[in-house]
Amino acid sequence: MQLTRFELYQRVCDRPLSKVAPELGISGTALAAICKRYQVPYPGSGYWTRMSLGLPAELPALPEAPDETIEITPSTPKPRRKRAPEEGSARKTRRAAKPHRPARHPLLFGVEEHLRKTRDVKDGEFLRPYKRILPDLISSETALLRVLSIANDLCLALDEQGYRVQIAPAADDLHRIHVKEQEVERKDRKYGRYQSGSIWAPDRPTVSMSTRCQSDSLSPR
Rank of each mutant, 00 (worst) to 15 (best):
L174Q: 01
R221W: 15
L31Y: 01
S75M: 06
L137A: 03
R5F: 03
Q39P: 13
R15G: 02
E7M: 02
K131A: 11
G25F: 12
A21H: 06
E71Q: 08
R5K: 11
K180W: 11
F109L: 13
P43C: 08
P74S: 11
I26K: 01
D188N: 10
R15E: 07
P22E: 11
L8Y: 02
A103D: 15
W48R: 00
S45H: 13
R101C: 07
P202H: 09
R94V: 03
K180L: 14
S18W: 13
R221V: 14
D153W: 13
L115V: 04
V40G: 02
A65E: 09
R128S: 01
P74H: 03
S89N: 10
Q2I: 14
P63A: 03
R37T: 11
P56L: 12
E113V: 12
T76V: 01
A21Y: 03
P63T: 07
R94F: 13
A21G: 08
L31P: 05
T142M: 08
L127R: 01
E185T: 01
Y194A: 00
G192Q: 14
L156V: 06
Q182F: 14
L107F: 00
K122D: 09
S27Q: 02
I167Y: 03
L31T: 06
G44D: 15
G88M: 08
E183Y: 09
D159G: 08
G25I: 05
K19C: 14
R81G: 04
G44Q: 14
R204E: 14
S52C: 04
K36R: 12
A32Q: 08
L107I: 05
A157F: 15
L55I: 07
L115M: 09
L145E: 08
T29K: 00
F6G: 01
A97H: 12
S215R: 09
R81M: 12
V40S: 01
A151M: 04
T118Y: 12
T206Q: 10
A151K: 07
I34H: 06
R221A: 13
D203G: 06
